[in-house]
Design a binder for these strands. Structure first.
Length: 289
DNA sequence: CGCCTTTGACCGGCGC
DNA sequence: GCGCCGGTCAAAGGCG
């Protein structure tokens, strides 16, 4: 069958089964580092935070603290290939930032009106089939080692569904940004090959400059972030270290954030420091670098 | 009371 | 065409 290309192919791969089934962690992390030069901006753009605090990202820490996986890891792969995807070597994975391609080379031509139409269509359960397949936002995923499924990333999310995933004993949760007119979605699932790893997939781009925290002018509270986003938008502040959960959940600061973000430096300098990274990536993976 | 999670049902896409 | 599966909806209930 004619399948969607590029990003959509990957999303299908990711959507069909457990993430780590088809993209060994090693590949993910390799990509993360090697593709970092192209990825971070797009990644942050997708989060809608690229302009919020540029200096934050000029520190050589332009990516999420953990493995950032572009959904278009392997644009050459079809769905079927995805099932058999096996990088020849850890460093030779064909992973690339095709999601960036989707954004840059082929900008998502979904304006707000179209978006609204799509949503209205969905809401009204009138799936009028147009001649074109449902257009989806570029997606990207990353893995984190965490005991909790829903990682705090500075935005408020509302869970709208949960599904059991085939070939995985862990359910997949679906979240949507609670901000009106913001259509960003998030999928959270656990890698069944490594239950300690949480795979978070973002879809779409935040339309609001800063996380909305209606309940929390203090920066704390249910579902709110434990720090002041207005000052330090940190979309993935606490996704890396499990240590943050439990005893640091309410006091993550920018320093900590920077500390963690070193992991995904687009350059090579920051890769030297594994620190918390060692908590996330098996040692043998680090050696591969 | 408002917001959130839970959960079963529904729908569309895709493979066979 | 049928069945599987991912994704979404929406009602119900819980919580602060």
């Amino acid at each position: 069958m004619e399948r969607k290309e590029g990003v959509l192919k990957m999303e299908e791969v990711l959507g069909n089964s457990s993430f780590s089934d088809y993209f060994p962690l090693q590949s993910i992390f390799d990509w993360n580092c090697e593709g970092g030069e192209n990825m971070p901006l797009g990644f942050m753009e997708l989060l809608g935070v690229q302009d919020l605090n540029p200096p934050l990202f000029d520190m050589g820490q332009q990516q999420a603290p953990s493995a950032v996986v572009n959904q278009a890891l392997n644009p050459c792969s079809t769905k079927n290939e995805g099932f058999n995807y096996q990088p020849a070597t850890p460093n030779s994975s064909s992973i690339s930032s095709a999601s960036s391609e989707a954004v840059n080379d082929e900008p998502i031509q979904v304006d707000d009106d179209q978006e609204e139409d799509q949503q209205k269509t969905k809401k009204q359960l009138k799936p009028k089939k147009t001649n074109q397949k449902r257009q989806r936002e570029p997606r990207f995923a990353f893995m984190t080692k965490s005991e909790v499924d829903h990682l705090e990333d500075g935005y408020r999310w509302r869970k709208y569904g949960q599904k059991a995933v085939k070939n995985s004993s862990f359910p997949r949760s679906y979240y949507r940004c609670t901000t009106t007119s913001c259509n960003v979605k998030k999928r959270v699932e656990r890698s069944f090959t490594d239950p300690s790893m949480v795979i978070t997939t973002y879809e779409g781009q935040h339309t609001h400059p800063s996380p909305i925290m209606p309940r929390s002018s203090l920066g704390v509270g249910a579902g709110s972030a434990p720090y002041h986003y207005q000052q330090h938008p940190q979309p993935f502040v606490n996704t890396l270290s499990p240590l943050n959960f439990g005893h640091n959940n309410g006091s993550i600061n920018a320093g900590n954030f920077h500390h963690e973000r070193r992991f995904c430096s687009p350059g090579s300098s920051l890769l030297k420091d594994h620190g918390l990274l060692q908590d996330v990536i098996p040692s043998h993976m680090l050696k591969e670098e």
